[in-house]
Amino acid sequence: MTREREITEPVDLCLPDGRLNPAAVGWSRRPLHRANLRGWGRTKRWEYWGVVTPTHIVGLVASSLDYAGVHSVYVLDRRTGIETNKEVVVPFARRVLFPTASGAGRVRAAGGGLSIDIDQRPDGSTIRATAPGVQVDLEAPLPAEHESLGVVVPWDTRRFQYTVKDLGRPVRGTLRVGDTAYPISAKDSFAVLDHGRGRWPYAIRWNWAAGSGPGRSIQLGGRWTDGTGSTENALFVDGRLHKIGADLTWRYDPTDWLRPWRITGDRVNVEFHPFHERVARTNLGVLANETHQCFGHFTGWAQTDDGERTDLDGLVGWAEEARNRW
């Protein structure tokens, strides 16, 4: 078990000289960190929104990775298995705009016929994206009592990451693929935000799993946080965050990504059953990535802070392995 400090007041991520602010290390129930990053040095900024509906899964990425902006719009038709995907690489992340705080301000990314526009307000976010054959126009309201997980992961004073994992957000709007418009209803759809700001080691691997359903969500991570004293593991019940301060064991078959995954540890016993594998690769020499993201259903349980086991059967989402050289 880790002994992480809960942060309850706004705090700068960095000291004036750009090193990690020791007062920023910990976790929070709402975004409280100001990502005052300076300059280069493998500095990474991104916003990822994943949206699950009964018929489709949508993934939107806007990112600045120092050398390049790597942006993508992805749509999976759950009924047919057909993927629609557009990724663009913009040298030196030109025309990219990121705010310093999660949940406040504007996100903009464009290039190569793709655009992502996100407006963040206290009451929610407007998410719009266009790519060849795809249009996304969504609202993700932010309920008053809804909590998210913010965590600072420290490798050392010059390599660190601030992440916000916001799960189970209601979402509504329209997805258009080709000539067909699909209405998205908050009754049976949800959105997940991964907000990232930090300075990373050059080569790293991570695992991430996120699943949501009515009244429950599970957020699990691994590898990249191991040994840092911080974790990004949490259970959400009716919008309330239950922080899980333990490194977890991940078991899966990298020769057959569609076999069931097992994720276990203190307060967590989860199986993930994939129904589709998405493979994303980028190779720009100094910058390379390979991600196997599987979409599927969860079974098992996780414990709340008071020890009650929460059933996770039927949650829908993803589990992934990502390998980065950046």
Rank of each mutant, 00 (worst) to 15 (best):
R172T: 10
R169N: 09
I244W: 14
D137W: 02
D156M: 06
A191I: 07
D137I: 00
G221E: 12
R159C: 00
V192T: 13
P201W: 08
F236E: 03
R159D: 00
G222W: 02
Q161D: 05
P183G: 09
G211E: 10
G213T: 03
L220F: 02
Q135A: 13
P143Y: 03
G213A: 06
G245L: 02
G213D: 04
S212R: 01
D179Y: 00
L138R: 07
V237Q: 11
P170M: 00
R205G: 15
G173D: 06
G168P: 10
R240V: 12
K165R: 15
R223W: 15
T228V: 03
L167W: 07
S217M: 07
A191S: 10
L175W: 09
T157M: 12
S212P: 09
L167S: 14
D194M: 04
A209D: 11
T231D: 10
A181W: 09
G239S: 00
S189K: 02
V177D: 05
F160N: 11
G150E: 15
L138F: 14
P143S: 01
L235S: 04
P183K: 01
L175P: 08
S217K: 07
D137S: 10
G178C: 13
L220D: 13
V177G: 07
L142H: 15
V192W: 13
L241M: 14
F160G: 10
G222Y: 09
P201H: 10
L142Y: 13
Q135V: 14
W155Q: 12
V151T: 14
A186H: 12
G211R: 07
A144Y: 10
L175D: 07
E139A: 12
G227D: 08
T228C: 10
W155S: 11
L193C: 10
R216W: 02
L142Q: 14
T174E: 14
G239D: 05
V164W: 01
G173V: 05
P183C: 01
G215L: 05
V237I: 04
T231K: 01
G150S: 13
G196I: 03
